[in-house]
């Protein structure tokens, strides 16, 4: 995967969480992931096609997502209910939207599918291209989450 594909997703994630949830996540060093096991307790995944193909997943720890959704809704959410699932899908959608706009500026026109949400400890994230994927780890005051992206330029 091209390094140029990483920054748009990193920036988009920070932008979406800052604007919608007033949470400023701290990015860590990106690394390669070779298995399908999700890093978080709940993940949103979305397929991407066009000048580059692949998929994007956002995988949140329970602590991180409860705080993010509480801030988004303006009410304290303390358990992993349907609101959380819905919000993870919507956040995945928005990060994909902002990242695709940035990729478009770099000359890659990409469209996205509808996000799906999976939860449970050690659930799988199956990337469209199979993998390996790049993990961009993030930390918040309430827990960690990762952006898990596998994207390849169309030959």
């Amino acid at each position: 995967m091209k390094a140029a594909f990483i920054n748009p997703f990193l920036e988009a994630t920070v932008e979406v969480l800052k604007t919608m949830a007033f949470v400023e996540p701290t990015p860590g060093k990106p690394y390669l992931k070779n298995d399908n096991v999700a890093k978080g307790d709940i993940s949103g995944i979305i397929g991407l096609t066009g000048d580059a193909r692949g998929s994007l997943a956002l995988s949140f720890s329970e602590g991180a997502i409860l705080k993010i959704v509480s801030n988004m809704l303006g009410e304290a959410i303390t358990d992993m209910n349907g609101d959380i699932k819905d919000a993870v899908g919507e956040l995945t959608n928005m990060v994909s939207g902002v990242a695709r706009k940035k990729l478009e500026a770099a000359g890659y026109s990409i469209t996205a599918a509808i996000p799906t949400v999976v939860s449970g400890r050690n659930h799988s994230i199956l990337h469209v291209m199979g993998g390996p994927s790049i993990i961009i780890p993030f930390n918040t005051d309430s827990g960690a989450f990762v952006v898990d992206v596998c994207l390849a330029r169309k030959e």
Binding site: M20, V69, M72, L73, G74, G82, D86, G89, E90
Partner: peptide
């Protein structure tokens, strides 16, 4: 179609 997004917008409108 997302209930959460409706709540988010409702929350912002309230603000």
């Amino acid at each position: 179609d997302f209930a959460t997004m409706r709540k988010v917008i409702r929350n912002i409108l309230k603000q």
